[in-house]
Design a protein around this nucleic acid. Structure first.
Length: 646
RNA sequence: GCCAAUGUAGCUCAGGGGUAGAGCACUUCCUUGGUAAGGAAGAGGUCAUGGGUUCAAUUCCCAUCAUUGGCUCCA
């Protein structure tokens, strides 16, 4: 008998060679139905693999990343099996599970191509293979045997992969007539997959190497329930509707011009209003938290970036330096704000009592992004960071992290991002040599970050080896209304710049000490954040952020003057809006302004003029009845207040 | 930067070797209206740019630029 310990700490005894599936059955038949993979002593494995020794196990369902991974990985094999059946002679590269579904890189037989027209046939075949409920069988093979298997098939991609593996660690998985090289784990059988569908095609280099052959990448997704696939496809459709590039155009928020240059957004009046509202709101929050606002130029002397190290690392891949005509001095468009902020810090001397010094700027930076990488507002060459740097003593790192986490959480909550995750990136414990800064400082900072996150109620994922060379960090990933994740906030410790710029403060011991610098951004870039906000809200911004909160709709032009009077009055209550005085019928005006996602429409006609009222219509809800303009102003200002109080 | 697709009116898109098309938007006129599209007329294009083939190119070919989807990169 062996002892199996479950995640809740309970221990059960089983015969030697018990499998994960049998353990699940022992716990509950329902669990046995849902479980997809197992972790045995933190190592991911198949449910059908026997366990011979005492072990800690975790059973994974589709809801867990690990379960999804196994599910989609097996699905990738189904995709390959279907393609092999339909397109004999296809060579296979790799076919991993990804965040949303899976893909397989393939090379079709000479002269054959794959197009969207082939999707229905592949889908049909895949479903058929799933319904056959073929068992997925693991087989361990020797290297020689593995290579000869794929040599016989003429699949040079697989043989290349195998040739890099160590003998004795190679496993094949077989389902139906299809065998693939794979580490696993996999589902016990293909019948778990109830819905499966090809999504798109793309080109991808073999092993991501642009000097090598380009393969066809087939993206697909699968689910344990048909309904889940339908929901996913609906979500994709909705995402298309919410595309910030489309809504940005419709709502006249921003524009791109080839003449100005690609990847450089032009902010239209309404987009600028939105950005200004976000910026001034955040500025107020920063001031409450004792940040000091600064402003720095858009360019900086090349020596600044030589000192910071950015020139050496990124100089070649940046916009090239510009020179003064007379002296030939070189300046760079600033790719980061931090060197400028460091120079502000250096403008005077500091005592340990002066720290922390929190410095913030909405700083516009310029980076040469490769042209294929540009995408709407999310990848641009000119963007404004909501940047801040905290200069502090080592003993203050934890407290500063807590304060920044508080701010990040406040901002997310205020903007209705209710779901988010945190990730802490630490040093690679196996190789500490590639990091700058003392061992002692790193240990202290890494501990401080983890404690700070813990005490703020975050449950961060810890990633070893993901830290930058200059310091550990804490990143925030938010989930939007469609369940997509976006990386927004980041908090990073930096030992590098204080070192390079020789920053100092005088300690209580009357000795000079080096401060620690913390970089942090909450929105990240205003451009990107506005894009995320647009897609999160589908352009229906919260009332306080709407560039136009109201539009007055006169029934006919006879009521234009009254509308103007009402608008002037509402402006006194800080309400933003305009009058739709087009020569159109009221139905038309309502339709057009609803489509512009105006939160409130105020209809005025004869009735309203006589009673000195407005007829209020709320976006998405329709007619709210009539009230005086003053009452309406109070109503919406109350709505905004309540928004922040919740 | 690499691969592929795309580029036609302000926007969304149809078309196609021989005088350039629609809907919406725009302008003017009619209409002065009551909670999601009132009517008519008009204006608007070097068919991305540069070459080539052709009697003739917006259409076919090549190159360039841009956009989109991927790949690679990302302080």
């Amino acid at each position: 008998m062996i002892k199996i310990t479950l995640p809740d700490g309970s221990v059960r005894e089983f015969e030697k060679s018990v499998t994960g599936l049998q353990i699940a059955e022992d716990i509950s038949p329902r669990l046995a139905k849902e479980v997809l993979a197992i972790s045995i002593n933190d190592e991911l494995s198949d449910l059908t693999r026997p366990i011979y020794e005492d072990a800690n196990i975790i059973l994974h369902k589709f809801e867990d990343d690990e379960g999804k991974h196994a599910f989609w990985h097996t699905s990738a094999h189904i995709l390959a099996e279907a393609i092999e059946a339909l397109f004999p002679g296809t060579k296979f590269g790799i076919g991993p599970a990804i965040e949303n579904g899976f893909y397989y890189d393939i090379e079709l037989a000479e002269g054959k191509t794959l197009s969207e027209n082939d999707f229905p046939a592949i889908n049909k075949k895949m479903l058929e293979l799933c319904q056959q409920n073929n068992p997925v069988v693991r087989k361990e093979v020797s290297k020689a045997e593995a290579i000869s298997t794929f040599e016989k098939k003429g699949d040079n991609y697989k043989t290349e992969l195998i040739s890099e593996l160590e003998d004795g660690t190679i496993s094949f998985y077989q389902q139906g007539n299809f065998t693939d090289l794979c580490r696993g784990p996999h589902l016990p059988s293909t019948g778990y997959i109830k819905a499966i569908q090809v999504l798109s095609l793309a080109g991808a280099y073999w092993r991501g190497d642009e000097t090598r052959k380009q393969l066809t990448r087939v993206y697909a997704i699968s689910f344990p329930k048909q309904k889940m696939l339908q929901e996913y496809l609906l979500m994709l459709e909705e995402a298309k509707k919410r595309d910030h590039r489309k809504i940005g155009k419709e709502l006249e928020l921003f524009h791109f011009s080839q003449k100005v240059g690609m990847g450089m957004a032009l902010w239209l009046p309404k987009g600028t209003m939105l950005r200004d509202l976000l910026e001034s709101w955040l500025t107020e929050e920063l001031k409450k938290r004792n940040y000091e606002m600064v402003k720095t130029p858009h360019i900086g002397h090349i020596d600044l970036y030589k000192t910071s190290g950015h020139y050496e690392k990124y100089g070649k891949d940046s916009f090239q330096a510009i020179q003064t005509p007379a002296e030939g001095e070189a300046f760079m468009l600033k790719p980061m704000n931090c060197p400028h902020h460091v120079e502000i810090f250096k403008a005077r001397q500091y005592s340990y009592r002066d720290l922390p010094y929190r410095m913030a700027e909405f700083g516009t930076v310029y980076r040469y992004e490769q042209h294929g990488e540009l995408h709407g507002l999310t990848r641009v060459r000119s963007f404004t960071q909501d940047d801040a740097h905290v200069f502090c003593r080592p003993d203050q790192v934890k407290d500063e992290f807590k304060k920044i986490i508080e701010l990040v959480m406040y901002v997310f909550k205020s903007l209705n991002f209710t779901e988010y995750k945190a990730q802490i990136s630490l040093r690679d414990p196996k190789d500490k040599t590639k990091y700058i800064g003392s061992d002692e400082n790193w240990d202290k900072a890494e501990q401080a970050i983890q404690e700070a996150a813990e005490e703020m109620g975050l449950k961060p994922k810890i990633e070893l080896g993901e830290a930058a060379f200059y310091g550990p960090k804490l990143d925030f990933m938010v989930k939007d209304a469609l369940g997509r994740t976006w990386q927004l906030g980041t908090i990073q410790v930096d030992y590098n710049l204080p070192e390079r710029f020789e920053l100092e403060y005088k300690g209580s011991d009357n000795e000079m000490h080096r401060p620690i610098m913390i970089h942090r951004a909450i929105f990240g870039s205003m451009e990107r954040f506005v894009a995320v906000l647009i897609e999160h809200t589908a352009g229906k911004f919260p009332l306080w952020l709407s560039p136009q909160q109201i539009v007055l709709l006169p029934i006919s032009e006879k009521f234009n003057n009254y509308s103007k009077k009402v608008l002037e009055l509402l402006k006194k209550y800080d309400i933003r809006g305009e009058i739709d005085d087009r020569n159109e019928k009221i139905g038309r005006k309502i339709r057009d302004n609803e489509l512009k996602r105006i939160p409130y429409l105020l209809i005025v006609g004869e009735k309203e003029v006589e009673s000195n009222t407005v007829s209020v219509r709320k976006q998405g809800q329709g007619d709210l009845g009539i009230m005086s303009p003053e009452n309406f102003a109070e109503l919406i200002n109350k709505e905004i207040q309540e928004y922040f109080n919740n």
